[in-house]
Design a binder for these strands. Structure first.
Lengths: 219, 219
DNA sequence: TAATAAAATTAGGTAAGCCTAAAAATATTT
DNA sequence: AAATATTTTTAGGCTTACCTAATTTTATTA
């Protein structure tokens, strides 16, 4: 059996592998959990001995296929739970992350499959991240960031590229949510901020930083 | 913060206090968890130091009000999750116990309240056990066991007085489920078994033992 | 390339929650 | 009430997943 701590390591390695485009140094893991480096060394040794990742001393780790499979399964659980919390229990999307972190460690394939069916096999979670299917396939999002958008075009918000609660709450204030229709009126050449209309009502400027965090598709 | 292990102890003490009508010896807890007695001694000391229960050496334990409050909250969570699994995700009632044991330890009042609302504030879980309300009030079931029923009367099954999977599966075979209408045709004086009709179809005999496990109300 | 800085590992330690073996307390039987 | 049986506790250990301090390895800069 695999422990909650082990699952969290695999999930973190999975995430960092893509972010860093390769081997994950132990320090990156320590930072991501806010724990001390030696704790990570211990744990990656254990996971390596379980063949869930490959560990090269002083270099870092890579997931094995076995480890990646588990990591993806956890990501799937996390995103399905988030979808359930927002879609069915009407939580706000900025409230669900911590809860999903707990729920993702409930051991039951059957439970997740039933939830998935109940939710109508959603492809994207409330943060806009793609939900891996039962076999671990992750459907690539064709989304771009709003920053990449063109003035004069209209986009639909399908996700957020950050887990920052601050950002989510800021967007809530602006009445921007999943599905919001964003029309780019203009781009300020000075700071690359965007003047946008939200759901056809003039809204004002979004900084380039914010625009870069908004995943959109053509509307 | 309270750990999963601690929560399980409080839940078990709560259950055993009613079953044994008073102080719970440490041995009863050891038995209920299938662990060794010394482990229990350690844990009850810790819980006593947290004022969640009162511990009299070599005598046993009783919940404090603080401890009971937590225990009831866990029972509430467990039963709401069971209800959700059966009512919404269409699990069979004999499949949900183990899952609810995991879900009950997810820390979030808000989550349970929203589930409760989503489910329409159910009063009774799929095993027929009453669901404590937000304040910990447990509505007494007015149910009797089928064994207490009278020949010639009709009853509706609202619950089961056992957590035995065997019993639940046996009832499934007989096509007896929550809501089934049971008409007592006759009682065998030899062994107190009951001849019943299930949902108006002649079914045959239920032993006194089974009848005693079926919670019913007048239909 | 040698010196220094940064990152990672080794070594030894802690708390939680379980364990076994032995001792002590309580209950039961004669 | 003494002897025996049962239950509970004490004492000391183990594993998991973390810790700090010291050392070693790797990277950077002079």
């Amino acid at each position: 059996m695999i422990s909650t701590a082990e699952e969290n390591y695999l999930k973190a390695v999975f995430k960092l592998e893509t972010e860093l485009q390769g081997t994950v140094p132990t320090g990156a893991l320590a930072q991501s959990f806010n724990i001390q480096a030696p704790s990570v060394t211990d744990m990656v040794k254990k996971l390596a001995s379980k063949k869930l990742l490959r560990y090269e001393k002083s270099k870092g780790v890579r997931l094995t296929d076995k480890g990646r499979k588990i990591a993806v399964a956890i990501v799937r659980k996390h995103r399905i739970w988030e979808t359930f919390l927002v879609q069915t229990l009407e939580f706000r999307w900025d409230e669900v992350h911590a809860l999903a972190e707990q729920l993702e460690h409930v051991h039951s394939e059957e439970l997740i499959d039933r939830l998935d069916t109940f939710l109508g096999h959603p492809k994207i979670d409330p943060h806009g991240d793609p939900i891996p299917d039962k076999n671990g396939k992750i459907q690539a999002t064709r989304a771009i960031t709003l920053k990449m958008g063109e003035p004069g075009n209209t986009y639909k918000l399908i996700g957020i590229r950050e887990d920052s609660i601050e950002l989510l709450q800021f967007l809530n204030k602006l009445k921007i949510g999943l599905g919001s229709v964003l029309f780019i009126e203009d781009r300020e050449s000075f700071d690359q901020s965007l003047r946008v209309k939200v759901d056809n009502k003039a809204q004002g400027f979004l900084s380039a930083i914010v625009a870069n965090a908004l995943l959109v598709v053509d509307a």
